[in-house]
Simulated scan of single mutants.
Amino acid sequence: MTQQNATSVALVTGATSGIGVEIARRLIQDGLHVLITGRSDERGRRVADELGERCRFIRADLSQPGAADRLIEATLAEWGRLDVLVNNAAIDHTNDLLAVGEEEIRSTFETNTFAPMNLLIAAARTMKAQGEGGSIINVTSRLASIGVPTMGVYSASKGAMLAFTKAAAIDLAPENIRVNAVAPGMTRTPLYQQWLDSLPDPEGEAERVASAIPLGRIAESNDVASVVSFLASPDNSYLTGISIPVDGGYLAK
């Protein structure tokens, strides 16, 4: 795959653990400078130290008013430009649908939908001003396309981002700004492991989950990162408005 320009810059949100860390690592390997964000100073600085001199960390709560513009400004102050945005930050939500309250819906959408929408718009304004196009990648979920019990609010928040990806791709195509989505299935992350460890039979549940996936295994974070790398690459300058499921064939069943 063609290396990015040595001055290319990526912003990756939610990159202090799990999938986000691997996305940042892969983009650095591809030759980009990367700014990562998250809510934990301790984790963020540790990841930035691990990833080396082409990585910087800025603590950010993207659900706060004005956060998107401040983060874009910080990226420009650090690296001088922005070529790739990866909207990865999200929170999980599970609850019996009839027990869901207004605040649960609001907080899930604030982080999973409104924040990445605002950031996409702010990033696209900067990319347009630079006049060289760019790539925006929204990390959604297989649940953006299917229904799963207790996951309705989360599914809706990711489904909205899937719809927004397609609409934004059309709006931004004249500026040569590509907008795509990556939709992971069940992925082996610290959050997944925490959920598994809370169950009475973790080993049995892991086998059950894997058996429902045609490829027979849970995704690893680098499975997702490799697809993000593909979409970010200038080699794929004719791809926009698509969503790639990284789910081992689950949605194909």
Rank of each mutant, 00 (worst) to 15 (best):
Q29Y: 09
L32H: 05
G38L: 04
G185V: 04
R142T: 07
D223K: 06
A129Y: 08
S145M: 11
A183I: 04
V179F: 03
I137V: 11
L239G: 07
A183M: 06
Y250Q: 09
D201I: 09
G80S: 13
L143Q: 13
I28N: 00
V182R: 03
G101S: 13
E78K: 11
A60C: 14
A60H: 00
I137N: 01
L191E: 07
R46F: 03
Q3F: 05
R178E: 01
T2S: 12
P65F: 05
D201M: 09
N5D: 12
V84L: 04
S107W: 05
V9S: 00
Q4N: 09
G152E: 04
E203I: 08
I58N: 09
A10W: 02
R56E: 10
W79A: 05
L85F: 03
D61N: 15
G216T: 07
A173T: 07
K253V: 13
A206K: 11
R208H: 13
A169N: 12
P184D: 02
L231D: 04
I213W: 07
L71M: 15
A168H: 04
R46D: 15
T75F: 07
R208G: 06
E102N: 12
D247R: 05
S211R: 14
E102V: 11
T75N: 08
F164N: 01
L215D: 07
R45W: 09
M127S: 00
R142K: 15
G248S: 08
G134Q: 07
T7D: 15
R39W: 01
N5R: 15
D235N: 11
E103Y: 06
A156W: 07
N5L: 09
N222W: 06
Y238S: 08
D69L: 10
V21I: 15
P214S: 15
T7F: 12
S243T: 13
T189E: 00
A24G: 03
T165R: 01
L51S: 03
L27R: 01
A210N: 12
L62W: 03
T2M: 13
D69S: 14
T37H: 05
L97W: 10
R56N: 07
V209T: 09
V34K: 00
L119Y: 02
D69M: 10
L162A: 15
I177Q: 00
I177M: 06
V21Y: 01
N5E: 08
T2Q: 13
A123F: 10
